[in-house]
Computed example of a mutant assay.
Amino acid sequence: MRDVLWTGIYGAMDEICRRSRAAYATAGFSQRASALAVHPLLDNFVWEALTSGWTEPAADHLRVPVAGDLDSPARWFRRDHPADSALAAHLRAAACSDLELADEPCTPDETFARRLTGACRLLAATVPELWQHTAPFVTRVFDIPSDGMSSASLDHTGGAIFVSSVSGDAGSEADRIHLAACLLHEAAHSKSYRIFRAFEQVRAPESPDFIDVPWWRSTGQTWAWDVDRSIVAAHVYSHLATFYDRLSATRPGLRRRRQQAAFRARFLTNVLLQLPPSALNPQWRDFIEWTASTIVPLGKLTDAGEKELSRPLSSFPLYRSG
């Protein structure tokens, strides 16, 4: 029986928080506070500590829990935390480098906040169990009015996400579905970052960009992905496939998106699970196996699609074992 994305040690919100609690406790974050009220800059501190071996507690202002109702998107737009100004500066610097975005992040205005809230309602109505166990990992949403990137997040600052307000059909159903997919995409990332805080290796092992991604070949962007990017992408695609699977029941026009997302998740997990033990420790392999078990059924594929899914690791010429 196929696993689902809102159960087990990698899917259930409470279990994910329980397993990652020690990382935040070391930083001085009170276990009496909600494990889902971690400010993104505290998560950044924890990430730095886990990757560099720091052991001292975080500064007092970072350890203040994020206020607001977990079930309401209103807390995404609040800027009342003592570390919010520093977070904006941190993300501004990241937007200029890591994300290569020209515009700095800003608080969504009232109009964009309404659009995002509508998208949140669509997710709550379509995939209520999944959204309940994913949305609370987001604590701050920023608008980057860019037409070149729909959404983004940083693996070292979990809980803060970027969504672009640029749309040619703002307020339409297509816009609401697009924003819902963006929110689910980045919320799944935030959830995965929390999962990884409980791992011995907070980041996947480094590898060359060797995975020839078939849907990326014509984008004009980097055509090959490394192990780290492929793991987090497979996790996101599994979430999107579940969303489009439910949504396409009443909107048949979305069935192709459902199959695309499911194919992408399956393709990446198939490649990753062929890696030798030296390339993935047991925790990462277990997470990939679990992700693979959550992917909705693919349905009928073209011959080309079947061929891509059956590619052996040796067919990727840039892969270097050992």
Rank of each mutant, 00 (worst) to 15 (best):
M1P: 11
R2E: 00
D14M: 11
C17G: 04
R18Y: 04
R18G: 00
A22Q: 14
Y24R: 13
S34V: 03
L36Y: 03
V38M: 08
V38L: 14
L42V: 05
F45G: 00
S52D: 06
T55M: 08
A58P: 01
A59G: 07
V64K: 09
G68P: 03
D69C: 12
S72V: 06
S72R: 05
P73I: 02
A74T: 02
D80H: 09
A89H: 14
A89K: 13
H90W: 14
H90A: 10
R92H: 06
A93G: 15
L99C: 08
E100M: 15
L101T: 04
D103A: 13
T107R: 14
T111K: 13
A113G: 02
R115C: 01
C120T: 06
R121S: 07
R121L: 11
V127S: 02
P136R: 08
P136M: 09
F137M: 11
V138K: 06
D147A: 08
T157M: 04
F162R: 10
S164D: 00
V166I: 12
L183M: 06
S192K: 10
A198W: 00
Q201N: 11
D209P: 06
I211V: 09
I211S: 02
P214I: 09
W216K: 14
T219C: 05
Q221R: 15
T222I: 11
T222E: 11
W225M: 13
D228W: 04
S238Y: 03
T242Q: 15
T242M: 12
Y244N: 03
Q260Y: 06
R264H: 07
A265R: 09
N270C: 13
N270D: 15
N270V: 11
Q274Y: 12
Q274F: 15
L275Y: 05
L280M: 12
P282H: 05
I288F: 11
E289P: 00
W290Y: 05
T291Y: 05
A292P: 01
T294D: 03
T294G: 05
V296R: 13
P297G: 10
G305D: 07
K307H: 09
S310D: 12
R311F: 09
L313T: 08
S315D: 10
Y319K: 08
R320H: 09
R320C: 07
S321V: 15
G322V: 15
G322R: 14
